[in-house]
Design a protein around this nucleic acid. Structure first.
Lengths: 151, 151
DNA sequence: TCAATATAATTAACATGTTAAATACAAAGA
DNA sequence: TCTTTGTATTTAACATGTTAATTATATTGA
């Protein structure tokens, strides 16, 4: 069953496309694992941020998990429906909320973290630690570029 | 810095997140330009593929523009509604279609290609040609990794 | 020939991305 | 106080991502 890709040589030097393909390569196996756990990639990111950081308000969750607030709003509603997070009102500022991971949420992370790290290790071994580091350095440096729109 | 414990990955060393951020950095200005032209990033990709390659069937367009067929189906409907593409039935295989860019579509590309290349040049100058090449090489190499899911 | 299988494209259903607008509350100032 | 301004979050509307199912046609093999 050879699904041979014609490998469009042109787009190989297009950074947006290359980033897209690389991301798909990395996320494919992870998405596969998460679908078995019943959560999406984005929901998993939110849960991990909450597990690592403790109680946060939505704005900070969005910032740390690289999600826009409108997306996060829906994701939090979904996660709340699955009883994976808890919402509480902020004690002094009634605009804010305090979100934290629930016991079930923590358990979901426990149940899948080993597999997640196994996939990360697989990538590191296949691609090579040195190349992985170099790639991450370049990506982070790219992200540091001046934010002003060129005009 | 000896962390031999299974510590959760910091987000700046997380490849999925780093790819996400880098892509947003690159696409932000481009998306901005395209919104003025009235097309999305994906619609622009489809138009450029058609402009470069000529007449194609949807499957090949999807492959070359890195879109899944269900997404492409809707995008083609949108582009057809804007009179930016033309559809014709395949002469021998009635399952297939033949999609080509219209005169208006070509004009849209003409009207925006200069700006698009200006943004590409800006990135190359800000980031550096050498780093850009190194990044593209690493991303392409990552994409070549064995497709089988590790198990 | 004809049933089984494969391919091309679409549809369905749900989740997220994206921008703009709306809502609710807070903080600051005349 | 009361208006203005700012902040936190949600909602709305539309486009795309993703997987599964469906439709239509083509191809294969007994």
């Amino acid at each position: 069953m050879g699904m041979n890709q014609p490998r469009p040589t042109e787009t190989n030097r297009s950074l947006p496309i290359a980033l897209l393909r690389a991301r798909e390569k990395v996320m494919g196996p992870i998405r596969n694992m998460l679908s078995n756990a019943g959560v999406t990639e984005q929901q998993w990111r939110v849960l991990r941020v909450l597990d690592e950081m403790g109680t946060l308000d939505p704005t900070e969750i969005a910032d740390r998990s690289c999600l826009l607030l409108p997306s996060l709003t829906r994701i939090l509603q979904t996660l709340e429906g699955k009883n994976l997070i808890l919402r509480e009102p902020h004690p002094t500022d009634r605009r804010k909320q305090q979100i934290s991971i629930s016991k079930s949420g923590r358990q979901l992370i426990l149940d899948n973290m080993e597999e997640s790290q196994r996939l990360t290790a697989w990538l590191r071994d296949e691609f090579g630690q040195d190349k992985l580091d170099a790639l991450l350095d370049l990506l982070n440096e790219l992200d540091q570029l001046d934010r002003h729109t060129p005009s």
